[in-house]
Amino acid sequence: MENQAPLRQEESLRIIQQMIETSKNSLRDDGTLYLLWGWLVFLSSIGHYALMAHTSYAHPYMVWLSMPLAGIFTGIYVARMSRKARVRTLVDEFMMYLWTAFIISMISLMWLMPKIGYAKTFPLVMILYAIGTFVSGGALRFKPLMVGGALNWAIALFAFYRPFQEQLLLLALAVACSYIIPGHWLKITHKKQHV
């Protein structure tokens, strides 16, 4: 694009369209973090359930200690990705605010867990998952995330009326719908777009 000759109006319009087109429609999220958190929560909730239902181990909740480690990995990963990025879109910025709000809400919820009661915490966690993934899906225009997020609301409502042990299995189902399946889907779609 070196030509400095006067432009025709139609050509101007074509340049504007072409440039706007080039910076949109590309799925920049490759699903890595959805898969990390999805599988981790899935395995932890199944592990917690298995330890609780089938062993006499006194501290089955210890499986959740993997969460802070995943948090550190996520921090490093996000910092590296933003260092690598050569462009920042409005969607990127929006997602940063959304997931920051999500993390703060999640930590608050964990902090308040003894006060709220264990039987109510996991359904509330599912509602937070629903917000995070549904809104992300909308911003990325990626339907599987939106559908998965919406399913989490339904699972959360059902889980409120079920005992704690059963809620652990429902939590695994919730993350499979909102993180694992859309995460793999996102990875495949991203790969196809970036070959």
Binding site: L7, Q18, M19, S23, V87, R88, T89
Partner: peptide, 13 residues
């Protein structure tokens, strides 16, 4: 015009 069209659709590049 291309630079401006590109920048109008992103935060920064």
């Amino acid at each position: 015009l291309a630079v401006m069209s590109l920048l109008i659709s992103v935060r920064e590049a």
